[in-house]
Amino acid sequence: MFLLRLEQVINSFSELMGKISAVLFVLMLFNVFIDVVMRYVFNDVSIGMQEMEWHLYAAVFLLGVPYTLKTGGHVRVDIIYDGLSAKTKSIIDMLGCLILLFPFCALVGWYGVDFAREAFELGETSGDPGGLPYRWLIKSVIPFAFFAILISGVGLFLKSLNVYLGNSQADDYQPPQH
């Protein structure tokens, strides 16, 4: 089945975003920890390391969004939704993708490209002593992430389509394991 196969390819892309984001999170955790230890114990501060904290944190949450979309982790108001049939749910998700998610992500991603390009053309760096160069790198995470959400959204659309067409069963979202 082409549609199922495509859904799987997109899903593994979203999974990859989640893995990258998780590794970046661990780096961020140690980054902050090391900065605290360096400052308090060794009386030493690196502005570059401090800026790296928010670079990592920003990448973590931006790249995490497509992954969370794939895992069904984004909150819904399910007062009505919960009681609906799998088929109706799949229609809601397909329409939601088409009307809400796709245009939103495409537009923000589109303007994000200009945003990152400006930083690249100006050779923007940190304005602080010892700060990080290449601001365009972190700025380009914005368009990248929004296009990734878009791709992950196509995955959600296909999944709903496959459920609608009866190609596959709906799977329920598994929250953090308890």
Binding site: V65, L69, H74, V75, V77, D78, I80, G96, L101
Partner: peptide, 26 residues
């Protein structure tokens, strides 16, 4: 739209887009 049950985050974003583009342009 929230009541329909599509994820909250993208409902906010999508509704913002529909109205923002309609009133002020993309």
């Amino acid at each position: 739209m929230l009541l329909v049950g599509f994820p909250v985050a993208f409902t906010f974003g999508g509704v913002a887009l529909l109205f923002g583009v309609f009133a002020e342009g993309a």
